[in-house]
Design a binder for these strands. Sequence first.
DNA 1: TAGGGTAAGTTTTTT
DNA 2: ACTTACCCTA
Length: 745
Amino acid sequence: MVYVVWVVSLNEAQQRAVRHRGGPLLVLAGAGTGKTRVITHRVAALLDEGVPPWRILAVTFTNKAAGEMRARIGDLCGPEMARAGMWVGTFHAICARVIRRHGHLVGLGPNFAIYDTADQKAAMKRVLKAQNVSDRAYRPVGILAQIDYAKNRGAGPEDLEELGVEEPLLSVVKRAWAGYERMLRAADAADFGDLLVLTVRLLKLARTSQDPLAEDAAALFTRFQHVVVDEFQDTNPVQGEIVGLLSQNAELCVVGDDDQSIYGWRGADVAQILRFPDRHPGCETIRLEQNYRSTTHILDCAEAVISRNQDRLGKSLWSDLGEGSKVVVSRLDDERSEAQWISSQVAQRVADGESPHEFAIFYRTHAQSRALEEALRAAGVHYRIVGGTRFFDRAEVKDVIAYLRILVTPHSDLDLIRVINRPARRIGAKTVDTLLGYAASQQISLFEALKHAQSAGLKKAAASRVTAVAELLASLREEVRDVAIDEQARLVVERTGYLEALANEDTIDADARLENIQEFIGSMGEFLEQSPEASLAEYLEMVSLSTSEAQQDARECITMMTVHSSKGLEFDHVFMSGMEDRIFPHVRAIDDRDEMEEERRLAYVAITRARRRLAISFTNRRFLYGDHQVNPPSRFIGNLPRTAIHELGRSSRRSTTLRAKPQVESTWDDDIVLDPDVDLSEEHDEADYDDRPAVPLYVGMQIRHAKFGIGDLVGWSGSGDSMRLNIRFADRGMKTILARFCEPL
DNA sequence: TAGGGTAAGTTTTTT
DNA sequence: ACTTACCCTA
């Protein structure tokens, strides 16, 4: 049997996780311990034992993970097994599927639209406007964030107070939430949070309702024999509830790593995995601790950082890949020197024959990427940045999507508002407002209102322009009926005059947009190849739920990204940049124990991405957000075991807020020790990193300046690196000097 | 209706 | 410092 072959390739703990049957199972899978293998093998084993595919549910967090899982199950059992009715998908995709089928229970039609962040924002803006709330005083995204957070905690408007929202924001959010909800339901739309919340509502209704229609949905409670959830540490309470509902008659296996829970700020609750054993009587916990990815110096660093956390189930990684290279800890002068150091390291290794694909640079916030980009460009290293704007978020692509969505969900007012004047049809804001007013008074959608332009009170000329759009859309719907979806899109851009208008612009920008549209239509073609029977609604759902970016640069690139985006990836060479307190850990996490623990997990995630080499760098000062900052080295650096690291750069023994600086503008190479064999670790002292003493300033204290000599401090202004000192020198009189060029005595 | 001037924002991101 | 979003003007 094939099964035997699998089993020998798994270690003992992995085998137990694959074979465990009969009760709830928690697999605590440390970084790089073969988590995905365990999940796929477990599913494959179930199929092998005769569990029908359709009785298995596997939930992941990203589409990418879902796709990989499907592919790997296909590899093990044959693609037909992976397809035959098995549910493999993200929480949101699975919820969308449930709602498509049974949405009538919660007021949604089978073709309901899914609003992404941009749609949500547009909707909220309109709601606030209608409620006469100044979107200056209350930013739409801010209100949406509150609502979304609440939804992900399974809370409703009435729970906002408990979640810590205070007046006057509280009543604004409450009212906005109600209006927003009404708007979405009227448009037959749901946002991401709704997908989860409404699924819970729907399932609960199905359980209690006598409605024969609900019985159909109730079949979901007995459908699944096995439920597997990946990345369980990132589930939020609502997702937990969904898992509970769908697995009430199934064996539940959750897989995750409490040490890698880094999405608490968007509603994920690490308690979900921490308390899983308590909440599930008879639960067995299996730890996967053998790491197949990293050498031990790297793992020792990871361990040293994460072991300081209190809220964890506890496990420790080991590996038999040998010690490997020490983790390099490098102090640089500023962010530009840091970027140059990193890019020279990369360039050198690439010149030695390493593949650029094997290099990654991480940073805590996007804002830090600039200096790195500049240095890499100067060094001629190609790079790509993960996590820019989504392809599907580009204006022209969104326009086409809006048209397509109107074809599927005509009542989606927002989409119609978006494109009613694209290309320009001389239908301005005023006309739209009139139509919206009419639609509201008649309780009809904007789409319907278009047909009654005259009754809506529009002047003849405006009315005829509006009627023309109504006719255009109507004929488009007809035309598109029995055509493949990519052809539908092609018809849309053609019949609406969208293509023509862009072509007439004849600018580089317009050409780029035309290309994007072509690419978009091309992506529909690809989608069709995957699933030839796909409907437009299905394609649109994929778009709403996906993050796929435009085609990647074919060149050999290194990768830059935030630490968050690095989760799940691995590289031979990893550079962690900007490792300073207040940057990483982030300043907003420093005073809060729970958030501090999340930063620590984040650091753990970053460290464990590296296979062979890890370099951690920090700077004496940094220019960020338009200001100079002087931050101590990250406290996480202070945690690293001395035996596992190799330090480069100047000692910081004398470091204070005022430190002598060379007069000459320093370049990176006079500030660091180039010879990697010069080990400065004898100068290392943990306290060095954790609390660098700041020298208190007082009027009258003595200050030394390299050129002017010693003088008396008379006063000062500013702070951080832009702090200026007023000093009286005996022979030169008063001078105002940047504090960083001075040294206190 | 585009483009300029201004004000305010800037942790992390999926779906 | 730099982006983004909005309002206003030409």
